[in-house]
Design a protein around this nucleic acid. Structure first.
Length: 514
RNA sequence: GGUCCCUUCGUCUAGCGGUUAGGACACCGGCCUUUCACGUCGGCGACACGGGUUCGAGUCCCGUAGGGAUCACCA
């Protein structure tokens, strides 16, 4: 079983936990599952978990986007499948660009998707003491050195090197420096040793990847303002938090060899790596705002269900034979890194929409009914009075692909007075149709039970009486009840609306003909 | 430009030396039908290219081309 090496981390982890109500809740949840004698072990980690420790480490500089969500999902799925531990860490070492709003947005999006974590969220901004200590360790052991070159100098040298066709690599001016300039600002660089050698790792998705060490730069690990940089803290934290498999976007492949060198220099075991391919836009470039919505929470606003998003995201780059539909528990059962593809995938909103329609069609009407209320409210419709939302969902679920579409389609049920579409009224609310409306009104009024079966029979009698086919009877009724020529089946609409509303709308329509 | 990664229908993918190269989304058409949908049946449509290895390559190897990522005191 894993044990924490660093006292500093031990103390700080509790500090972070205490700062987060969410992780308190997670802790209580797991604690409740344990025998009372073991409960005081629970805060650190649950005893029934396996050794796998993975993490999601977003940078809080914006909302949770599609790509990040998929990375988080893969981590989550593998942790749950292997009964491992899923750690959430907030990478906010760039204090200027990080915001609490972004942290909240990311947490909210993960909750919406159903991605729960076991430890964290840990904030790197609260762990600077640890990082400085580790920088000092490297300095003391001669594996890092101070560099006094200014950012402007470096930039100039980089450009010069590039212009001559050379590599924009740090020239190690300060490694050879014998006398440190008194009081000058400096950064700390990690020294890449063994320049003749290679650094290789066996990526769980991509296979073996090898880099020549002389391609690697002496990267900056501590800025002149004393704050550490990403490539360093990610190593320290992943090691200190006992992460043994790093699942992240493949834009990090190029960072991996120097991170491995730092693990070794700090005396840490090197974790496994799994680099998941990027998500591209339709033009095959990295997904960005100009490709449309990339924030997962914007999809919620657009009426998407979280299970559709999860299902779509996982199938983008992963497959299980010919299967397309996966619930979260299916995925926890079936997900493997071996079945993750190597190549980047194009984000296809059409397929997401199809999946969303599927989950609307098959979802629990009571749950969707509650959701519908929220989307109706967003449309400015008060649905506190009127038909049961669950019944409304049943009439609309086969013709709405998003909850927003459903809300628009459901509006007529709840408006106090239907607005007739001009063309619909002109065609179906005319003197010629008045007898039909009156006959339907009379038959429905006489009904003892008001269900679809009885309603259907009533229409049968109307057709007999008037000698008209349903194709002539239904349209004026539809317009009278919904204001539109497009709606669910009129029988369903009548049943859901109820006798009182139906008759009232029928009479109003007949009266409107004049 | 250097380095690294990738390459089966428009898109997501199945395939793990022998298949009429399968499925899904999208698109087109038929059927169903009280509107719109749903559903259902069918159609269109791919192994980037060139060399090898092999009795036999989408599958293995090497090139080429194309695409992507990365080269910061961002993460």
């Amino acid at each position: 079983m894993f044990s924490f090496k660093s006292k500093a981390f031990h103390a700080r982890s509790f500090q972070s936990l205490a700062s987060s109500e969410r992780s308190e809740r997670a802790r209580e949840f797991f604690t409740g599952l344990l025998p009372s004698t073991l409960q005081n072990l629970a805060p650190q980690r649950s005893y029934f978990m396996s050794g796998l420790r993975v993490r999601f480490a977003p940078s809080p500089t914006g909302y949770l986007h599609i790509g990040g969500a998929r990375t988080a999902l893969f981590n989550y799925l593998l942790a749950r499948k292997e009964k491992g531990t899923f750690v959430l860490r907030i990478e906010d070492t760039d204090v200027a660009r990080s915001t609490q709003e972004s942290v909240d947005a990311i947490l909210q999006a993960m909750e919406w998707l159903g991605l729960s974590y076991d430890e964290g969220p840990f904030y790197q901004s609260e762990r600077f003491d640890l990082y400085r200590q580790k920088v000092q360790q490297l300095l003391d052991s001669g594996k890092a050195y101070r560099c006094y070159c200014s950012a402007e100098e470096l930039e100039a040298r980089r450009e010069a090197a590039l212009k001559e066709g050379g590599k924009p690599k740090y020239d190690r001016t300060c490694l050879r420096r014998t006398e440190a300039p008194e009081g000058s600002p400096y950064v700390v660089r990690f020294q890449v040793e063994d320049e003749e050698g290679v650094t290789a790792f066996d990526d769980r998705i991509k296979g073996t990847i090898t880099f020549r060490n002389d391609e690697l730069d002496d990267l900056i690990i501590l800025r002149s303002d004393g704050t550490p940089t990403y490539n360093f803290v990610v190593v320290v934290d992943d090691a200190e938090m006992g992460i043994n498999l790093v699942i992240r976007g493949d834009d990090h492949i190029n960072n991996t060899p120097r991170q491995i060198l730092m693990y070794k220099a700090l005396g840490y075991p090197v974790p496994g790596f799994a680099h998941v391919p990027m998500i591209l836009g339709a033009d095959k470039t990295r997904l960005s705002k100009r490709h449309g919505a990339t924030s997962v929470m914007v999809y919620r606003e657009m009426g998407y269900l979280p299970e559709a998003m999860v299902n779509y995201l996982v199938r983008l780059g992963w497959s299980h034979g010919d299967e397309e539909i996966f619930s979260m528990s299916d995925l926890i059962d079936k997900f493997t890194l071996e079945a993750v593809g190597k190549s980047a995938g194009v984000f296809n909103p059409e397929k997401l929409l199809w999946l969303n329609a599927h989950y609307i069609k098959t979802g629990d009407p009571a749950r969707l009914g509650k959701l519908l209320l929220e989307y109706l409210a967003a449309e400015g419709i008060d649905a506190t009075r009127g038909p049961d939302p669950a019944a409304v969902v049943v009439t609309l679920r086969e013709r709405a692909r998003t909850m927003v579409e459903m809300a628009k389609g459901a509006a007529f049920y709840y408006v106090p007075e239907v607005t007739y579409e001009a063309e619909a009224a002109a065609k179906f609310l005319t003197e010629a149709q008045r007898p039909v409306l009156e006959s339907v009104t009379a038959r429905l009024e006489a009904l003892e039970t008001f269900d679809e079966e009885a309603i259907s029979q009533a229409f049968g009698m109307v057709m007999e009486e008037t000698g008209l086919k349903l194709g002539k009877v239904a349209p004026p009724v539809r317009v009278a009840l919904t204001g539109s020529t497009v709606s669910p089946s009129v029988y369903e609409v009548i049943a859901v609306l109820g006798r009182e509303q139906t008759l009232q709308r029928l009479r109003r329509a007949a009266a409107a003909i004049s």
